[in-house]
Simulated assay, not measured.
Amino acid sequence: MLKTYSVSLAVGILAGLIYAVLDVNSPAPPIIALVGLLGMQIGEHLIPLVKRLINRQPVNLHWFRHDYHHKIGDNPPPSGDKTS
């Protein structure tokens, strides 16, 4: 758990440094903050997709529902669905 907080703090410091370099006030105006959050979400969710593409694994509905979708909201796959 401490690792999560440490990584979060480090990334926050990095974001603050980037804001300073770009001369953006912190906290950023709402639209800039929302665009930044969107960028973080896109970046976070691109990594599993790119890994699958590099490993030449299929990117299909089965992968999304069983191996990935539940990670977005920490929800288990729908009941009755088989994970294999």
Score class of each variant (00 low, 15 high):
L2M: 01
L2S: 04
K3S: 00
K3I: 03
T4L: 06
Y5V: 04
Y5G: 12
Y5D: 15
S6K: 03
S6L: 10
S6P: 00
V7R: 00
S8I: 02
L9W: 02
A10Q: 04
A10L: 00
A10I: 05
V11A: 10
V11Q: 03
I13N: 12
L14T: 13
L14H: 04
A15P: 10
A15W: 07
G16L: 10
G16E: 10
G16K: 07
L17W: 13
L17P: 11
Y19L: 07
A20N: 14
A20H: 14
A20I: 13
A20P: 02
V21W: 11
V21G: 06
V21Y: 12
L22S: 14
L22D: 10
L22E: 14
L22G: 07
D23H: 10
D23T: 14
V24M: 11
V24K: 07
N25R: 09
N25P: 02
P27C: 13
A28Y: 12
P29Q: 10
P29G: 14
P30T: 15
P30Y: 11
I32C: 10
A33E: 15
A33Q: 12
L34Q: 15
V35F: 12
V35W: 12
G36I: 11
L37G: 13
L37M: 09
L37D: 11
L38R: 12
L38F: 14
G39F: 04
M40Q: 14
M40R: 13
M40G: 07
M40Y: 10
I42P: 00
I42Q: 08
I42F: 09
I42N: 09
I42M: 05
G43W: 03
G43H: 06
G43Y: 09
E44M: 05
E44D: 10
E44W: 00
L46V: 06
L46Q: 03
P48S: 06
P48G: 04
P48R: 07
L49F: 02
L49R: 01
V50S: 02
V50K: 01
V50D: 01
V50C: 04
V50A: 08
K51I: 05
R52M: 01
R52C: 04
R52K: 07
R52V: 00
R52N: 00
L53R: 09
N55R: 01
N55P: 02
R56W: 11
Q57E: 13
Q57R: 07
P58M: 03
P58D: 02
V59H: 03
N60E: 11
L61E: 05
L61Q: 06
W63C: 00
W63P: 00
W63Q: 01
R65K: 15
R65M: 15
R65E: 10
H66Y: 04
H66F: 02
H66W: 01
D67S: 08
D67Y: 06
Y68Q: 07
Y68V: 00
Y68R: 04
H69Y: 09
H69R: 09
H69S: 08
H70C: 08
K71D: 05
I72M: 05
I72Q: 08
G73N: 11
D74H: 05
N75C: 06
P76A: 09
P76T: 08
P77V: 09
P77Q: 06
P77I: 01
P78V: 11
G80F: 06
G80C: 04
D81P: 00
K82W: 12
K82F: 08
K82G: 08
T83I: 12
S84T: 11
